[in-house]
Nucleic acid binder design. Sequence first.
DNA 1: CCAAAAGTGTTGACAATACACCCATGA
DNA 2: TCATGGGTGTATTGTCAACACTTTTGG
Lengths: 252, 252
Amino acid sequence: MPARDPHAHDSYAYDPHAFEPFAVTVDLAVFTVRAGALHVLLIRRGRAPYAGDWALPGGFLLPRESAEAAARRELAEETGLPDRLVAGLRLDQLRTYSEPDRDPRMRVVSVAFTALVPGLPEPAAEGGGDADRARWVPVAEARGLAFDHAQILADARERVGAKLEYTCLATAFCPPEFTLGELHAVYETVWDTALDRPNFRRKVLATPGFVEAVPGAARLTGGRGKPAALYRPGPATTLHPPLLRPVEGTQR
Amino acid sequence: MPARDPHAHDSYAYDPHAFEPFAVTVDLAVFTVRAGALHVLLIRRGRAPYAGDWALPGGFLLPRESAEAAARRELAEETGLPDRLVAGLRLDQLRTYSEPDRDPRMRVVSVAFTALVPGLPEPAAEGGGDADRARWVPVAEARGLAFDHAQILADARERVGAKLEYTCLATAFCPPEFTLGELHAVYETVWDTALDRPNFRRKVLATPGFVEAVPGAARLTGGRGKPAALYRPGPATTLHPPLLRPVEGTQR
DNA sequence: CCAAAAGTGTTGACAATACACCCATGA
DNA sequence: TCATGGGTGTATTGTCAACACTTTTGG
């Protein structure tokens, strides 16, 4: 409930703490698939607390800026990602982290986002701003993160895995035109499971609007093997029926 | 990124706005199923802005309180829901609303939650606090809400519908012991679709841990018809494979 | 010719649907 | 005995997993 008058309720009538200032920030978990491993974009902190540690990119909301806008701005400022890519990037809210002691200095509430970008040929974290401190790090090796960023990263990883099941978001990990082999590799990498290639292929092609063929085009992948047909992302956003992760446990 | 020193970055070095205070609130979309319709818990506002309009319950975070804790506290304070129910209630973060002008008076960032409660015999919105201003309203009739609460409500409704597909959350709409007919009615009400009863029944019973039979018990439902067996919520939290909403469109 | 990667076919297990049908209770 | 809601059976249909197989390229 926005801005109810802090004097409106007995339990904090005239309580100055009702105006206690909160800092509001955004944090970004930006993922990519490189060299067969899921990577996350991290920034090395320059000052205390957690100086020298790795952290998720992010920062404060400006006074008249939504969290989405702040996330996009911070991503452009703090990382070396190309402007065109950041402008067209899809940002998904993950959740908001509001534990009172998550920052040792003051009360900070942070809205976390996830984003998926294609694997880039060059290290991507180059250029102006704080970009020299930005790096792609395999999620398996991302340890000792500042603040509660390990938790955010874990939540984000789980969310991304789940989203691949029932949305068409996997194509966001691929370049504008991609082969089904590349899309297959995205699923296997994010889920860390083997998927039967022929069945995966059929499933993707049977879902209307997931991908659409680029007429006549083909590409040699890795120089070896038969050239693969190219596809573009289709207009669909959700997968019906979903493409479920195989479960290790007892059921199904 | 929590509490980065606002002087740390050139673009707002020494900018006092980096400390611009934000108010942080929670908003709650609490749903129940009553008389075959999905209802949401609303509060009638007592003062401007939007005086006299209906709004979602919610309020400010206290200085050392997480959003989850604030949501639970506000729910207990503002509504007549029984304390036992509020204490055991499951709260799910929906998303955070941060548009700069969503409150006409000041900058307010609000973390929205959803919660599901069983249909209560009595009107539920009774007792102390602001409870006399609280009411269950059918979502179809909830119009003209204060602030951006119509948007929050729409998002919450969609999320709840989606969650029924792949989680066991539907039992939260039912009393501690319930019949499969009641569970069936929950799905039909929330999704606003007819579901084949025998198939629904088999699906639920075939999902391990969704529900477990209460030994020997049976209940007359509505006085008419055969007494139905009683079930309790099981230990499972997710539905594998999911119970998908029938789609009206072309696909599937 | 061989290795590697793309792409097709086939089959059996299983799950979801659309029904028809029986059972227990109140009026 | 009828209406009402609970509960069971079954045939059909479709989907998914497993795996054998063909095709096209580079070396």
